[in-house]
């Protein structure tokens, strides 16, 4: 694991978050939630800070991070791609779309491409069922996506 340097400002922000929860061990999940909001993901260094502030073992923090699929230890890509797997999208073939993204980008869900450009995740219903299947790249929403259209979407950002 290569060591990464966290920005002092963000670390301070994280420590403030811990303090706002009274550095209470019982709030570990909430603290991690906020931490992921600040850093976008939860690298080892962030987990060490959290462990230190809440006075729990790093192993325990890591245990919690790896237990909940919401938490991630890989940084999101420059263009995070999310595929909706809500019921409407699913019945309209979202899974095939997802498979195509995996094939084109050569990564699995939760991973980031080697060049750091794209990452892949799944969503549960974004409330745009009329447009199913729905894909989001960053903030931009794509509707009625078919497997054939995947290459074009990716090309827009390359």
């Amino acid at each position: 694991m290569a060591k990464i340097k966290l920005s002092d400002r963000k670390v301070q922000e994280l420590k403030d978050v811990c303090k706002s929860f009274n550095n209470d061990k019982g709030e570990l999940i909430n603290v991690l939630h906020k931490a992921q909001g600040i850093f976008g993901y939860l690298p080892a260094e962030v987990q060490e800070v959290v462990a230190h502030e809440l006075q729990v073992s790093v192993a325990h923090v890591y245990g919690v991070v790896t237990f909940y699929s919401f938490f991630t230890m890989t940084p999101k890509g420059e263009h995070p791609i999310s595929i909706c797997l809500g019921t409407a999208c699913y019945v309209r073939g979202a899974e095939k779309v997802l498979d195509e993204f995996k094939r084109v980008l050569n990564i699995q869900v939760g991973e980031t491409t080697a060049d750091g450009k794209f990452s892949l995740s799944c969503l549960r219903c974004v409330g745009a069922c009329g447009l199913a299947p729905v894909v989001m790249v960053g903030e931009k929403v794509y509707g009625r996506v078919s497997p054939d259209g995947v290459k074009d979407i990716v090309a827009e950002y390359n």
Binding site: M1, A44, Q47, V56, S57, V58, A59, H60, V61, Y62, G63, T66, F67
Partner: peptide, 24 residues
């Protein structure tokens, strides 16, 4: 964890991948 308060080991991951391991 409880007796020695060392915290070297913790249950990590879930389901079939679950193991008791040190951090990371």
């Amino acid at each position: 964890n409880e007796v020695q308060t060392v915290g070297a080991l913790s249950a990590v991951n879930r389901g079939f991948m679950a193991v008791v391991a040190p951090a990371f």
